[in-house]
Write a protein that binds this DNA or RNA. Structure first.
Lengths: 198, 198
DNA sequence: AACTTTGATGTTTTTTACGATATCACAGAA
DNA sequence: TTCTGTGATATCGTAAAAAACATCAAAGTT
């Protein structure tokens, strides 16, 4: 496809990756088949507006028709508002991903669990800090706690996990105060979900 | 079609009308059949991205994927940048439309005429002022001059018309200085060209 | 090594936009 | 009135996207 559509395709992929979603997950959220998403992102189809809207809105984006003159200003605003994600060391990034995955799995299994929200918030809040690799084992055991709780259906474990996670967050925030509020101007949301679909 | 696409369709129509283009003219510019434009504006098709891009770019618009959070800011910018046109008294509006039509006709007949650009600029500049109905006859005779020049191919008439138009503009700007740059709250539409395609 | 996830690609069938063309009613202007 | 431009529709054939599968190789995890 043409060059103007390329940018749109790229923006979609970036947005998806920024939200740490796989094509399949996005597919579920947007109701667009994964195969189609792959083709769209590689700019090999002339997609219909309905598909674009579905994907965009699943990614918290909106389609705007902007006067050419306003494009630079809009880009600047967009950049400002765009996820400024804390970049974690690779090992930490991976582990956080696993952790999110565990939480998602839990959510599927026990969607009504009230502690679940706590857990998600704590994870989101943790995600916003720069985490040193020395906390890797903490994260891992945190995840194990969650997984164990899930498999045994001992929901108390979730409660404990949420507590430990908050404690960890506070500890990191305390020892590494510089990294907190690194994004002073904008709240931004790095990887938190804020609102998952149910 | 759905509700989110409605807005896009509306934006397209607004942009077209703000540029004083008929569906057929836009059709020519964008290479999209008039019938299709009608369907699109009435939101009765799920148009392909390529069509959207074609129309948008003919209308000097660009498609942007904006984070939800940034939407208000972007709207504000867009509004700011959007041609805010003066709302003329009906009679003046009609006459200005006729005048634009005459210029367009001329453009088709003698596209290479160098005075034509002058003429267009003068008309655009005039358009930006609030024109009192007492200038109606001026406008009308201005138009007649242009039409006569066109039919007789006496291109000198164009030159004169451009001059008179500039003079008229200055006179109005002088007697009605308050109305200049009176960008009311409503962008509305009305008439403005700002920059045409070449 | 066995297993899972991810993104890409292929196939088939169904749906739909698109382009071309032709009207049509309506509104203005001559 | 007559003529012209406008926007909305209708029909038809073609092309293409979309949906629903199924794989598959690569990379990662356990």
């Amino acid at each position: 496809m043409s060059y103007e559509t390329r940018e749109i395709a790229d923006r979609l992929r970036e947005a998806r990756e920024a939200k740490q979603l796989s094509q399949r997950e996005l597919s579920r959220l947007a109701g667009v088949p994964q195969a189609q998403i792959s083709r769209i992102e590689s700019n090999s189809v002339d997609l219909r507006l309905s598909s674009l809207v579905a994907l965009a809105s699943a990614l918290d984006l909106e389609i705007a028709l902007v006067p050419r003159k306003a494009v630079p200003a809009v880009k600047s605003i967009t950049r400002q508002t765009t996820d400024r994600t804390v970049i974690q060391p690779p090992a930490i990034g991976k582990e956080m991903q696993q952790l999110q995955k565990a939480i998602r799995a839990l959510q599927i299994e026990a969607p009504t669990l009230p502690e679940l929200d706590e857990l998600r918030k704590a994870a989101a809040s943790l995600q916003r800090l720069q985490i040193d690799t020395r906390y890797l084992s903490h994260l891992r055991s945190l995840r194990h706690t969650i997984e164990r709780a899930r498999s045994t259906e001992q929901w108390r474990g979730i409660f404990e996990a949420a507590n430990s996670m908050r404690a960890l967050r506070n500890q990191i925030a305390h020892f590494e105060p510089a990294s907190e509020q690194r994004n002073a101007n904008r709240p931004a949301y790095s990887l938190d979900e804020e609102d998952d679909d149910a």
